Amino acid sequence: MQISFPSCRPDYCARDLVLTFPARVDHQTVQCAITAEALEDHFDARSLREEDLIDAFTAHRRDIEIAARRMLTEIGGNPILLHSGYFRFCT
C-alpha cells in the first residue's frame, strides 16, 4: 500500500471539532481527521480555536502523519479519525 500526504493546510470542522487532511492511498484520496482533543492532549494546542489547532497540527505534522499512516495501513486505507486515545495507547 502506497500512502502519501499532500502538503496542504488542514480544514477545520467546528461542528465536529476536528481538523481534516487528505491522504493519497494507492492513488486514491482518503479523508483523515484528528480531533481537537488529541491536538490539545498530545500536540500542545493551546485551545480549541481554529488557529491554535492548525498551529499544533503544523508543528507536529510529521508525527500526526506517521500515526495516520499506521492507522491507514491497519484498516486497509479507509477514512480515519485519530482520537486522543489512539495516541495515548498506540504511540
Rank of each mutant, 00 (worst) to 15 (best):
M1H: 14
Q2Y: 12
I3R: 13
I3M: 05
I3W: 03
I3G: 11
I3Q: 02
S4M: 08
S4H: 12
S4Y: 02
S4F: 15
F5A: 06
P6W: 10
P6K: 09
P6V: 02
R9E: 09
P10V: 01
P10K: 05
D11H: 12
Y12L: 08
C13P: 14
A14W: 01
L17D: 14
V18W: 04
L19C: 13
L19Y: 13
L19S: 01
T20K: 10
F21P: 08
A23W: 03
A23G: 05
R24Q: 11
R24E: 15
V25G: 08
D26F: 08
D26E: 01
H27N: 14
Q28M: 15
Q28H: 13
T29N: 13
V30I: 11
Q31M: 04
Q31E: 03
A33Y: 00
A33C: 09
A33K: 03
I34A: 05
I34D: 04
T35E: 00
A36T: 10
A36Q: 05
E37K: 15
E37Y: 00
E37C: 04
A38K: 02
A38P: 00
L39P: 02
L39I: 10
E40D: 09
D41G: 09
H42P: 10
F43I: 13
D44F: 12
D44Q: 06
D44W: 05
R46S: 11
S47R: 06
S47N: 02
L48I: 09
R49T: 10
R49P: 02
R49V: 11
E50R: 08
E50L: 14
E51F: 07
L53D: 06
L53S: 02
L53T: 09
I54C: 15
I54Y: 06
I54L: 07
F57Q: 06
T58H: 13
T58F: 07
A59Y: 12
R61E: 13
R61Y: 14
R62L: 09
D63T: 01
D63R: 14
D63W: 08
D63A: 13
I64K: 15
E65S: 01
E65P: 00
I66F: 11
A67Y: 07
A68N: 01
A68G: 06
R69A: 11
R69Y: 07
M71T: 09
M71E: 13
L72D: 06
L72E: 09
E74R: 15
E74H: 10
I75S: 13
I75C: 07
G76Y: 00
G76W: 02
G76E: 05
G76V: 07
G76P: 00
G77S: 11
N78R: 14
N78D: 08
P79L: 01
I80R: 02
I80V: 06
L81M: 12
L82E: 12
H83Y: 05
S84Q: 03
G85I: 05
G85Q: 12
Y86G: 04
Y86M: 15
F87K: 11
F87V: 01
R88A: 01
F89K: 15
C90Y: 12
T91V: 09
T91Y: 02
T91P: 12
